[in-house]
C-alpha cells in the first residue's frame, strides 16, 4: 500500500452537467419551485379540474328521450327539469335529512370516544385506541357495509339477539313505526341510518380527538381553581374548544353521506338518494346530463356547509 494521498483542501471541482444544473437550481430557487410544482399542477389542472369542468359542461347539455342521444347545445333545460320535478326535490330533501341525522349521531357517539382518548387513555392503550379508529377509517368500506347485511338480515344476528332477550315485539313495533320503519331492518330508514353512522363514525372521532388534544391542561386547572365544577368546566371550557373539531368531522360525515350510493342501495328503501340517482341516470338510463346536474347539487350543499363551517372556525382544527 502506498502512503495516503495528500489531503486536498480545495473543494472538489466536478464540473459535470449534474453539478451545473444543481448550481443553477440552487441559485434560482424559483425555477426549482416551478419544476417541482409543474407535474402535480398539470395533473390536477388537466385531469381533475378538467374533469370537473367537463362535468359542469355536461350538466348544461340535454338528453333527448326519443333518440337517446346527448345534444351538445348549452341550455338550462336539464336544470329546469331537475328542479321542476317534485320527485327530484324529494330525493334532495331525503338525502339532506339523512346527512344531518347521521352527522348528529356520529357527533354524539364519537365525542365520548374522542374525549376518552384525549384525556384518559395513555401509552399502549392510547395507541391501540388510535389504531382501532384509524383502521376502519382507511379500509374495507364495502366490507363494512356488507357486515350490516349479515347483521340486519331477517334471520341475522340483530333479530336473534332481540329474540333471545325477549324483545322481538319491540323490534316489530319499531319496524311498524311510520317513516323510520319498513318491512325488515335491512329495508328501512332506521337500518340505513345505522349503517351510515357506523361507516362514517371514525371520520368524526379523529378530528374531535385532535381538537381535544390541543386543549391546554392549564386551562382546565385554571377553571377548577376559579371554582368551576367539572360539569361547568366541560360546558364552558372544553366544549367550546372542541367544537371546531366536531364541525371539521361533520364536514366528512355530511359530505360522505350526501354522495353515497352503495348504502342506500344495499340497505335501503324504495325512495332514491342523490347518489343513486346520479348512478342510475348515467348508467342504465344513459342520461349523463341529468346525472351531472344532480351531482352539482351535493357540491352546492357542501359549499354552503363549508361556508357555515368556516364561520364556526372549523378550519383551525383541520
Amino acid at each position: 500500500m502506498n502512503a495516503a494521498p495528500a489531503f486536498d483542501s480545495t473543494p472538489p471541482r466536478r464540473g459535470g452537467i449534474g453539478r451545473r444544473l444543481s448550481n443553477l437550481l440552487y441559485r434560482r430557487s424559483g425555477l426549482l419551485l416551478l419544476l417541482l410544482l409543474l407535474p402535480p399542477l398539470a395533473w390536477f389542472g388537466i385531469v381533475y379540474l378538467g374533469s370537473l369542468f367537463a362535468l359542469l359542461l355536461q350538466s348544461f347539455y340535454t338528453f333527448n328521450d326519443f333518440t337517446g342521444q346527448i345534444e351538445r347545445v348549452l341550455t338550462l333545460d336539464t336544470y329546469v327539469a331537475l328542479f321542476s320535478a317534485p320527485a327530484h326535490i324529494d330525493i334532495v330533501l331525503r338525502t339532506l335529512a339523512m346527512a344531518v341525522a347521521v352527522t348528529l349521531a356520529c357527533a354524539l357517539i364519537g365525542f365520548p370516544i374522542a374525549y376518552f382518548m384525549a384525556f384518559h387513555a395513555r401509552g399502549r392503550m392510547k395507541a391501540a385506541m388510535y389504531l382501532a379508529v384509524m383502521l376502519p377509517l382507511w379500509s374495507s368500506y364495502l366490507v363494512r357495509v356488507y357486515a350490516w347485511r349479515l347483521l340486519l338480515a331477517k334471520e341475522g344476528i340483530v333479530a336473534w339477539v332481540c329474540a333471545q332477550l325477549g324483545l322481538g315485539g319491540v323490534l316489530e313495533a319499531v319496524l311498524a313505526t311510520p317513516l323510520v320503519g319498513g318491512p325488515t331492518l335491512s329495508s328501512s330508514y332506521l337500518g340505513m341510518f345505522l349503517v351510515f353512522t357506523y361507516v362514517w363514525l371514525p371520520f368524526m372521532i379523529l378530528p374531535v380527538q385532535a381538537a381535544l388534544e390541543r386543549v391546554p391542561g392549564s386551562l382546565l386547572q385554571a377553571s377548577a381553581d376559579l371554582g368551576a365544577r367539572p360539569r361547568q368546566t366541560f360546558a364552558h371550557v372544553v366544549l367550546p374548544l372542541a367544537f371546531p373539531g366536531v364541525v371539521a368531522g361533520s364536514i366528512f360525515t355530511f359530505s360522505l353521506t350526501l354522495g353515497d350510493y352503495i348504502i342506500p342501495g344495499v340497505v335501503g328503501t324504495p325512495g332514491f338518494f342523490i347518489g343513486q340517482m346520479v348512478y342510475v341516470q348515467q348508467g342504465t338510463a344513459g342520461n349523463v346530463p341529468l346525472a351531472a346536474a344532480f351531482s352539482v347539487v351535493p357540491v352546492l350543499l357542501i359549499a354552503a356547509y363549508l361556508a357555515l363551517a368556516r364561520r364556526l372556525g372549523a378550519f383551525d382544527a383541520l
Binding site: 385531469v47 381533475y48 378538467g50 374533469s51 370537473l52 367537463a54 362535468l55 359542461l57 355536461q58 364536514i251 359530505s255 360522505l256 350526501l258 354522495g259 353515497d260 350510493y261 342523490i274 347518489g275 346520479v278 348512478y279 348515467q282 349523463v288 346525472a291 351531472a292 351531482s295 351535493p298 357540491v299 357542501i302
Partner: peptide, 15 residues
C-alpha cells in the same frame, strides 16, 4: 377527498 366520491367519479366519466 373533500367532495363526495360520486362527484369525482361522474366528473371523470364526463371527461
Amino acid at each position: 377527498i373533500a367532495l363526495p366520491g360520486i362527484v369525482t367519479g361522474i366528473a371523470l366519466l364526463s371527461a
